[in-house]
Design a protein around this nucleic acid. Structure first.
Length: 609
RNA sequence: UGCCCGAUGGUGUAACGGUAGCACAGCAGACUCUGGAUCUGUUUGUCAUGGUUCAAAUCCAUGUCGGGCAGCCA
């Protein structure tokens, strides 16, 4: 069986990517700094992955791929109040889908239930948790049931131990200030903060208090563990940041074992360290956290080489929103049909829409990686999608807005099976037969009574070719009460069929069509951009800019072969666009999503007037 | 107005002191039984001002503009 992802993978080889992060990695490799390059993709399971995450996945897995290294999938789950297993499941599915056949052999997972082990390093005590490589499924088989992603929450024991070590060294203290008081004493960016009155507690008191925090003696928000750094630092993240907070909440992965949870800054750098990450790549907003990342690692006196953090600009795409909060809002307020709504930039939405993983990967390669906050034109994504689909899609005939055509000189009841090419870009896709009869449907747009200049479709008295069939002439227009055309009566040049005597006659326009008698009705969902403005989240309420016409549903006339369309295949409805079968399809009633229209130079011409 | 980061055509990027290139978009044309695809050609750019240098998009200084940072979120 040929899967869509197999069809063109060879032809779709991406150019060798290069960017400032890859340059750093390459220099480190050249300097022999690491035995093996290890990156990681660390989403928090509090939402679905979107195309912005794809940029990070492609970068991290790409680096691993280019250096024969690995990329660990890690759930950064240190805040149980916002997280859920629904998200950990969707994240795994989306990552597997995106990297399949490309970097799945670079995916680092771990044995289910396994936590870091005490592994001495050069005689010094240390913790480590190695990945199983490759952690991906073998081609065509189910995911390995004995493996799972890494979880930051699997490191809670070691993290706790590191925290105790910091306390012992006088580098951390238990602070009894309320959140409001911490806020007031933090100072401002241009004004130093004040030391907490608990800053100079004795080591033994800190140890005792921290133990009791863990034991659940104190309610939420009453105490924190803070790093002792510098309340006057110009970098506010160095002003005795909170390392641990009390949360009496059940965690989706660790259950009720903990009521004390580490903050991102404490957990992240150490998770990287425990997994042996060499290059920890994140987005620009973490740049100011880097000194803290380094501080924690340095002050723990860890034996192995430390990971280093690098930051790049996150993706912004025109006419959509990317923030988790806004996506969550769209889903929860039912402004879209779910996380996998084909109008969303989520990976599950793009997948349902019919976009392939290869197209997304090529898009990510095309946009590059820099530290500049840019707004990427959707046209770049659209180009990547068309380029990919043009090569793999099977061509089919379908009519979205039917107009009846009767061929007066064609015998009633006669049916011909015409030979049609499945994919002119790929001869191996083969051919098929499509029925032709006296009564047909063509697209309403393909007929105009008084057409503008340069219109070369059907008009009264005009000629046009029906793809794979005959040249027809429009003799008569039948109208409804309102005067709108409801049927065209035409005459065919019966020698003009492909291969026939007059087949070579030059006729400017070629139309797609479907034979009325054999046509299959199918639901077609036509999508347009979700927002009407390029930057919906620039200012004010982004919901004001929702495009009311982002989804149009209609019943189309389909050529009969579409009755057994395959959800894994991609289709081009000729002259219309690319379509993919939706899971809502029922036997005998297919539902197609329009992934994207074809480039339409006539629309541009027509719009010019 | 403290600290950090950034700025190359319309958009996104490359050039690592030595000819400003690529992609997308645009425009013009060829071809076409998809106004698709393909092919050809083409318009448009180094934020500013100084400095270093034989030579600066690149190094330095100042300025301008943009982004980030004051969660017990990540």
């Amino acid at each position: 069986m040929t899967r869509p992802s197999d069809t063109v993978s060879a032809a779709a080889t991406a150019p060798a990517a290069s960017d400032f992060i890859r340059d750093i990695v390459a220099a480190d490799v050249a300097a022999g700094k690491y035995e093996r390059i290890v990156t990681r993709f660390p989403p928090e399971p509090n939402g679905y992955l979107h195309i912005g995450h794809a940029k990070s996945i492609c970068l991290n897995f790409g680096i691993a791929r280019e250096h024969g290294g690995q990329c660990n999938l890690r759930l950064d789950d240190t805040n149980p109040a916002k997280e859920d297993v629904e998200y950990v499941d969707s994240i795994q599915a989306d990552v597997n889908w995106l990297i399949e056949g490309w970097a799945d052999d670079r995916l680092g997972l771990k044995p289910k239930g396994k936590t870091p082990e005490a592994v001495p390093w050069r005689g010094r005590p240390d913790f480590h948790l190695a990945a199983v490589m490759p952690g991906a499924r073998e081609a065509g088989t189910a995911p390995r049931a004995d493996l799972e992603p890494f979880y930051a929450s699997d490191y809670f024991d070691q993290l706790h131990e590191y925290a105790v070590r910091l306390i012992r060294n006088g580098k951390a203290y238990v602070c009894d200030l309320t959140p409001e008081q911490v806020d007031q004493t933090r100072g401002a960016p241009d004004r130093p903060g004040q030391d907490s009155p608990f800053r100079s507690r004795s080591v033994s008191e800190n140890l005792d208090l921290f133990a009791r925090m863990r034991a659940g003696e104190f309610p939420d928000g009453t105490r924190t563990l803070r790093a002792r750094i510098d309340m006057a630092s110009p970098n506010v993240w160095l002003r005795d940041p909170v390392l641990y907070r009390i949360r009496h909440v059940t965690h989706h992965h660790t259950g009720d074992r903990w009521c004390l949870y580490p903050m991102y800054d404490f957990a992240h750098c150490l998770s990287d360290y425990l997994e042996g990450i060499t290059h920890s790549v994140c987005t620009l907003e973490f740049e100011v956290h880097r000194p803290l990342y380094d501080w924690i690692l340095e002050n723990l006196d860890l034996p192995r080489p430390r990971p280093r953090q690098f930051e790049f600009a996150r993706l912004s795409l025109g006419y959509t929103v990317m923030s988790k909060r806004k996506l969550l809002q769209l889903v929860h307020e039912r402004l879209v049909r779910g996380w996998d709504d084909p109008r969303l930039p989520t990976l599950s939405g793009l997948r349902r829409r019919g976009v392939t993983a290869a197209a997304i990967r090529h898009f990510c390669a095309a946009i590059g990686v820099t530290k500049f906050n840019s707004l990427t034109d959707v046209a770049v994504l659209e180009h990547a999608i068309r380029e990919d689909l043009n090569r793999r899609a099977l061509r089919r005939l379908a009519v979205l807005r039917p107009l009846r055509v009767v061929i007066l000189n064609y015998p009633a009841g006669q049916v011909e099976q015409l030979d049609a090419v499945n994919n002119p870009e790929d001869p191996s896709a083969g051919r098929r037969r499509i029925p032709f009869g006296r009564e047909l449907y063509i697209e309403q747009d393909d007929f105009m009574e008084t057409p503008p200049p340069k219109y070369f479709r059907l008009r009264p008295g005009g000629e046009v070719r029906l793809k794979y069939a005959y040249i027809i002439r429009c003799d008569e227009v039948v109208r409804d009460a309102a005067g709108a055309p409801v049927e065209l009566r035409c005459t065919a040049d019966l020698d003009s069929k492909t291969g026939g005597a007059t087949a070579g006659r030059k006729v400017k326009g070629t139309l797609h069509w479907v034979s009325a008698a054999q046509a299959l009705d199918g639901e077609v969902r036509l999508y347009d951009r979700l927002f009407t403005v390029p930057e919906p989240d620039a200012a004010g309420d982004f919901q004001q800019h929702l495009n009311p016409h982002s989804l149009q549903v209609r019943t189309a006339k389909l050529e009969p072969s579409l009755g057994d369309a395959d959800p894994r295949m991609r289709y081009q409805f000729e002259r219309l666009g690319y379509f993919a079968l939706d899971p809502d399809s029922q036997p005998g009633r297919p539902v197609f999503n329009r992934t994207i229209t074809l480039r339409d130079t006539w629309a541009k011409e027509a719009a010019r007037g």
